[in-house]
Protein backbone atom coordinates (compact mmCIF):
# COMPACT_ATOMS: atom_id res chain seq x y z
CA UNK A 1 0.00 0.00 0.00
CA UNK A 2 2.86 2.34 0.82
CA UNK A 3 4.42 1.57 -2.52
CA UNK A 4 1.27 2.55 -4.22
CA UNK A 5 0.98 5.82 -2.37
CA UNK A 6 4.56 6.62 -3.27
CA UNK A 7 3.88 5.89 -6.88
CA UNK A 8 0.84 8.11 -6.85
CA UNK A 9 2.83 10.88 -5.27
CA UNK A 10 5.67 10.53 -7.69
CA UNK A 11 3.28 10.74 -10.56
CA UNK A 12 2.17 14.13 -9.44
CA UNK A 13 5.71 15.42 -9.27
CA UNK A 14 6.48 17.76 -12.10
CA UNK A 15 8.11 15.57 -14.72
CA UNK A 16 5.70 12.71 -14.27
CA UNK A 17 2.81 15.15 -14.28
CA UNK A 18 3.88 16.31 -17.72
CA UNK A 19 3.76 12.77 -18.97
CA UNK A 20 0.36 12.24 -17.44
CA UNK A 21 -0.86 15.46 -18.94
CA UNK A 22 0.33 14.47 -22.41
CA UNK A 23 -1.30 11.10 -22.05
CA UNK A 24 -4.51 12.75 -20.93
CA UNK A 25 -4.44 15.05 -23.93
CA UNK A 26 -4.04 12.03 -26.18
CA UNK A 27 -6.88 10.24 -24.43
CA UNK A 28 -9.35 13.06 -24.37
CA UNK A 29 -8.63 15.44 -27.20
CA UNK A 30 -7.09 14.27 -30.42
CA UNK A 31 -7.13 10.85 -28.79
CA UNK A 32 -9.88 9.68 -31.07
CA UNK A 33 -7.50 8.90 -33.86
CA UNK A 34 -4.74 7.65 -31.61
CA UNK A 35 -4.52 3.95 -31.08
CA UNK A 36 -3.69 3.35 -27.47
CA UNK A 37 -1.25 0.64 -26.75
CA UNK A 38 -0.43 -0.64 -23.33
CA UNK A 39 -1.98 2.07 -21.25
CA UNK A 40 -1.48 1.85 -17.51
CA UNK A 41 -5.00 1.69 -16.27
CA UNK A 42 -6.31 2.14 -12.76
CA UNK A 43 -9.36 0.06 -11.98
CA UNK A 44 -12.02 1.96 -10.10
CA UNK A 45 -14.41 -0.53 -8.53
CA UNK A 46 -17.31 1.28 -6.82
CA UNK A 47 -18.69 0.02 -3.53
CA UNK A 48 -21.81 -1.60 -4.95
CA UNK A 49 -19.80 -3.53 -7.53
CA UNK A 50 -17.28 -4.54 -4.88
CA UNK A 51 -20.00 -5.80 -2.56
CA UNK A 52 -22.74 -7.11 -4.80
CA UNK A 53 -21.40 -7.84 -8.29
CA UNK A 54 -17.63 -8.27 -8.11
CA UNK A 55 -17.62 -10.31 -11.32
CA UNK A 56 -18.34 -7.09 -13.22
CA UNK A 57 -15.05 -5.78 -11.88
CA UNK A 58 -13.29 -8.96 -12.94
CA UNK A 59 -14.85 -8.58 -16.37
CA UNK A 60 -13.25 -5.18 -16.82
CA UNK A 61 -9.89 -6.32 -15.51
CA UNK A 62 -9.68 -9.49 -17.59
CA UNK A 63 -10.77 -7.81 -20.78
CA UNK A 64 -8.35 -4.91 -20.49
CA UNK A 65 -5.51 -7.24 -19.63
CA UNK A 66 -6.36 -9.48 -22.55
CA UNK A 67 -6.11 -6.39 -24.75
CA UNK A 68 -2.56 -5.92 -23.55
CA UNK A 69 -2.98 -3.10 -21.04
CA UNK A 70 -1.48 -2.90 -17.61
CA UNK A 71 -4.31 -3.02 -15.13
CA UNK A 72 -3.80 -2.08 -11.52
CA UNK A 73 -6.24 -2.08 -8.70
CA UNK A 74 -5.23 0.45 -6.04
CA UNK A 75 -6.28 -1.37 -2.91
CA UNK A 76 -6.65 1.89 -1.01
CA UNK A 77 -9.71 2.91 -2.98
CA UNK A 78 -13.07 2.94 -1.28
CA UNK A 79 -15.88 5.29 -2.30
CA UNK A 80 -15.92 8.33 -4.60
CA UNK A 81 -18.24 10.17 -2.21
CA UNK A 82 -21.32 10.12 -4.39
CA UNK A 83 -23.85 8.89 -1.80
CA UNK A 84 -23.01 11.77 0.53
CA UNK A 85 -22.88 14.29 -2.32
CA UNK A 86 -26.30 13.24 -3.62
CA UNK A 87 -27.67 13.46 -0.10
CA UNK A 88 -26.50 17.04 0.20
CA UNK A 89 -23.71 16.29 2.67
CA UNK A 90 -20.94 17.98 0.74
CA UNK A 91 -18.71 18.35 3.79
CA UNK A 92 -18.27 14.58 3.99
CA UNK A 93 -18.26 13.99 0.23
CA UNK A 94 -15.43 16.44 -0.28
CA UNK A 95 -13.10 14.42 1.98
CA UNK A 96 -13.66 11.30 -0.08
CA UNK A 97 -13.37 13.18 -3.36
CA UNK A 98 -9.95 14.51 -2.40
CA UNK A 99 -8.96 11.04 -1.31
CA UNK A 100 -10.13 9.60 -4.61
CA UNK A 101 -8.00 12.06 -6.58
CA UNK A 102 -4.99 11.17 -4.42
CA UNK A 103 -5.44 7.46 -4.95
CA UNK A 104 -5.94 7.62 -8.72
CA UNK A 105 -3.95 10.63 -9.84
CA UNK A 106 -0.96 8.56 -10.98
CA UNK A 107 -2.86 6.66 -13.65
CA UNK A 108 -3.00 7.46 -17.32
CA UNK A 109 -6.57 6.29 -17.39
CA UNK A 110 -9.04 5.18 -14.77
CA UNK A 111 -11.73 2.77 -15.88
CA UNK A 112 -14.85 1.80 -13.98
CA UNK A 113 -17.88 -0.41 -14.54
CA UNK A 114 -20.22 2.36 -13.39
CA UNK A 115 -21.75 5.30 -15.21
CA UNK A 116 -22.91 6.77 -11.97
CA UNK A 117 -19.55 6.91 -10.21
CA UNK A 118 -17.72 8.12 -13.32
CA UNK A 119 -20.29 10.90 -13.67
CA UNK A 120 -19.63 11.84 -10.07
CA UNK A 121 -15.94 12.34 -10.77
CA UNK A 122 -16.23 13.84 -14.21
CA UNK A 123 -19.28 16.06 -13.81
CA UNK A 124 -19.48 16.91 -10.13
CA UNK A 125 -15.99 16.93 -8.65
CA UNK A 126 -15.35 20.38 -10.10
CA UNK A 127 -18.30 21.82 -8.24
CA UNK A 128 -17.57 19.89 -5.08
CA UNK A 129 -13.84 20.62 -4.92
CA UNK A 130 -14.02 24.18 -6.18
CA UNK A 131 -11.84 23.36 -9.18
CA UNK A 132 -12.16 20.51 -11.61
CA UNK A 133 -9.24 18.11 -11.08
CA UNK A 134 -7.29 17.12 -14.20
CA UNK A 135 -8.04 13.52 -13.29
CA UNK A 136 -11.71 14.11 -14.15
CA UNK A 137 -10.86 13.91 -17.85
CA UNK A 138 -9.03 10.62 -17.46
CA UNK A 139 -11.83 8.69 -15.76
CA UNK A 140 -13.92 6.56 -18.09
CA UNK A 141 -16.86 4.30 -17.89
CA UNK A 142 -15.98 0.84 -19.16
CA UNK A 143 -18.08 0.67 -22.35
CA UNK A 144 -17.23 4.24 -23.24
CA UNK A 145 -13.54 3.47 -22.81
CA UNK A 146 -13.69 0.42 -25.05
CA UNK A 147 -15.56 2.11 -27.87
CA UNK A 148 -14.34 5.70 -27.73
CA UNK A 149 -10.76 5.27 -26.57
CA UNK A 150 -9.79 1.79 -27.68
CA UNK A 151 -12.02 1.85 -30.80
CA UNK A 152 -13.25 -1.58 -30.10
CA UNK A 153 -16.73 -2.99 -30.41
CA UNK A 154 -16.12 -6.71 -30.73
CA UNK A 155 -14.42 -7.92 -27.59
CA UNK A 156 -14.68 -11.55 -28.66
CA UNK A 157 -17.29 -12.47 -26.10
CA UNK A 158 -19.92 -15.15 -26.47
CA UNK A 159 -23.28 -15.21 -24.70
CA UNK A 160 -26.26 -17.28 -25.66
CA UNK A 161 -29.53 -15.56 -24.98
CA UNK A 162 -32.03 -12.82 -25.62
CA UNK A 163 -30.86 -9.67 -23.88
CA UNK A 164 -32.33 -6.23 -23.32
CA UNK A 165 -30.26 -3.24 -22.29
CA UNK A 166 -31.39 -0.77 -19.63
CA UNK A 167 -29.99 2.75 -19.98
CA UNK A 168 -28.84 3.91 -16.58
CA UNK A 169 -29.70 7.60 -16.23
CA UNK A 170 -26.18 8.61 -15.34
CA UNK A 171 -24.71 6.85 -18.35
CA UNK A 172 -27.39 8.19 -20.64
CA UNK A 173 -27.82 11.75 -19.45
CA UNK A 174 -24.71 12.62 -17.48
CA UNK A 175 -22.14 10.89 -19.68
CA UNK A 176 -24.24 10.70 -22.88
CA UNK A 177 -23.23 7.09 -23.34
CA UNK A 178 -26.03 5.47 -25.27
CA UNK A 179 -24.82 3.70 -28.40
CA UNK A 180 -21.56 2.29 -27.02
CA UNK A 181 -23.03 -0.47 -24.81
CA UNK A 182 -25.37 -1.43 -27.63
CA UNK A 183 -22.53 -1.67 -30.14
CA UNK A 184 -20.61 -3.89 -27.76
CA UNK A 185 -23.62 -6.12 -27.09
CA UNK A 186 -24.49 -6.46 -30.75
CA UNK A 187 -21.02 -7.80 -31.46
CA UNK A 188 -21.35 -10.57 -28.88
CA UNK A 189 -21.73 -13.95 -30.55
CA UNK A 190 -24.95 -15.78 -29.76
CA UNK A 191 -26.55 -12.71 -28.21
CA UNK A 192 -29.82 -11.28 -29.47
CA UNK A 193 -30.32 -7.67 -28.40
CA UNK A 194 -33.90 -6.44 -28.03
CA UNK A 195 -34.73 -2.80 -27.29
CA UNK A 196 -36.63 -1.90 -24.14
CA UNK A 197 -38.64 0.94 -25.73
CA UNK A 198 -39.76 2.55 -22.51
CA UNK A 199 -38.51 6.05 -22.88
CA UNK A 200 -35.78 5.44 -21.70
CA UNK A 201 -37.20 5.87 -18.22
CA UNK A 202 -35.46 5.71 -14.88
CA UNK A 203 -35.71 2.42 -12.96
CA UNK A 204 -36.32 4.33 -9.73
CA UNK A 205 -33.11 3.49 -7.90
CA UNK A 206 -31.68 6.96 -7.35
CA UNK A 207 -29.44 5.95 -4.43
CA UNK A 208 -30.96 7.02 -1.11
CA UNK A 209 -34.10 8.02 -3.03
CA UNK A 210 -34.97 4.30 -3.14
CA UNK A 211 -35.04 4.24 0.65
CA UNK A 212 -36.44 7.69 1.36
CA UNK A 213 -39.29 7.31 -1.12
CA UNK A 214 -39.77 3.54 -1.30
CA UNK A 215 -43.30 3.67 -2.72
CA UNK A 216 -42.52 5.90 -5.69
CA UNK A 217 -39.20 4.16 -6.25
CA UNK A 218 -40.82 0.71 -6.29
CA UNK A 219 -43.63 1.89 -8.56
CA UNK A 220 -40.97 2.98 -11.03
CA UNK A 221 -39.26 -0.40 -10.74
CA UNK A 222 -42.55 -2.19 -11.35
CA UNK A 223 -43.09 -0.35 -14.60
CA UNK A 224 -39.51 -0.98 -15.62
CA UNK A 225 -39.87 -4.69 -14.94
CA UNK A 226 -43.12 -4.79 -16.90
CA UNK A 227 -41.36 -3.17 -19.86
CA UNK A 228 -38.52 -5.68 -19.58
CA UNK A 229 -40.94 -8.59 -19.53
CA UNK A 230 -42.72 -7.26 -22.61
CA UNK A 231 -39.51 -7.62 -24.62
CA UNK A 232 -39.38 -11.36 -24.01
CA UNK A 233 -35.74 -11.03 -22.98
CA UNK A 234 -34.16 -13.61 -20.68
CA UNK A 235 -31.60 -11.16 -19.42
CA UNK A 236 -31.54 -7.50 -18.60
CA UNK A 237 -28.13 -5.88 -18.78
CA UNK A 238 -27.03 -2.47 -17.50
CA UNK A 239 -23.87 -0.56 -16.76
CA UNK A 240 -24.70 0.47 -13.21
CA UNK A 241 -24.93 -1.79 -10.19
CA UNK A 242 -27.59 0.38 -8.52
CA UNK A 243 -30.06 -0.09 -11.37
CA UNK A 244 -29.36 -3.82 -11.45
CA UNK A 245 -30.06 -4.14 -7.73
CA UNK A 246 -33.30 -2.22 -8.09
CA UNK A 247 -34.45 -4.10 -11.18
CA UNK A 248 -33.16 -7.44 -9.93
CA UNK A 249 -34.82 -6.91 -6.56
CA UNK A 250 -38.17 -6.26 -8.21
CA UNK A 251 -37.82 -9.13 -10.69
CA UNK A 252 -37.08 -11.49 -7.85
CA UNK A 253 -39.95 -10.16 -5.70
CA UNK A 254 -42.33 -10.76 -8.58
CA UNK A 255 -40.92 -14.22 -9.22
CA UNK A 256 -39.93 -13.28 -12.74
CA UNK A 257 -37.67 -15.66 -14.66
CA UNK A 258 -35.73 -12.71 -16.16
CA UNK A 259 -32.21 -12.37 -14.77
CA UNK A 260 -29.91 -9.41 -14.42
CA UNK A 261 -26.29 -9.11 -15.41
CA UNK A 262 -23.79 -6.30 -15.39
CA UNK A 263 -22.58 -5.32 -18.84
CA UNK A 264 -18.95 -5.75 -17.82
CA UNK A 265 -19.55 -9.25 -16.52
CA UNK A 266 -21.28 -10.24 -19.73
CA UNK A 267 -18.49 -8.85 -21.90
CA UNK A 268 -15.48 -9.84 -19.88
CA UNK A 269 -16.54 -12.31 -17.22
CA UNK A 270 -15.20 -15.26 -19.16
CA UNK A 271 -12.42 -13.47 -20.96
Amino acid sequence: MTGLRNRAMMATSSSAALGVWMMAAALTGAGRSTTLNAVRIGLFIPCLVDQFMPRAGLGVARLLKKLGHTVEYPAEQTCCGQPAFNSGIHSEAVVLAKRFVRVFDGFEAVVSPSGSCVAMVRNFYGDLLGARPALADRVFEFSEFLVEKLHLTDVGARFDGRVTYHDSCHLLRELRVESQPRQLLRAVKGLELVELNDGPTCCGFGGTFSIKFPDVSAAMAEDKVAAIERTGAQWVVAGDAGCLMQIGGMLSRRGSPVKTMHLAELLGGNA
Partner: peptide, 13 residues
Amino acid sequence: KRDLPPLAAKTFH
Protein backbone atom coordinates in the same frame (compact mmCIF):
# COMPACT_ATOMS: atom_id res chain seq x y z
CA LYS B 1 -41.16 -3.43 -1.83
CA ARG B 2 -38.42 -5.48 -3.48
CA ASP B 3 -35.84 -8.08 -2.63
CA LEU B 4 -32.34 -7.19 -1.56
CA PRO B 5 -29.80 -9.01 -3.68
CA PRO B 6 -27.41 -11.01 -1.50
CA LEU B 7 -23.90 -9.75 -0.83
CA ALA B 8 -21.43 -11.54 -3.07
CA ALA B 9 -19.64 -14.32 -1.21
CA LYS B 10 -16.37 -12.56 -1.92
CA THR B 11 -15.79 -8.90 -2.64
CA PHE B 12 -13.98 -7.79 -5.75
CA HIS B 13 -11.03 -7.00 -3.59
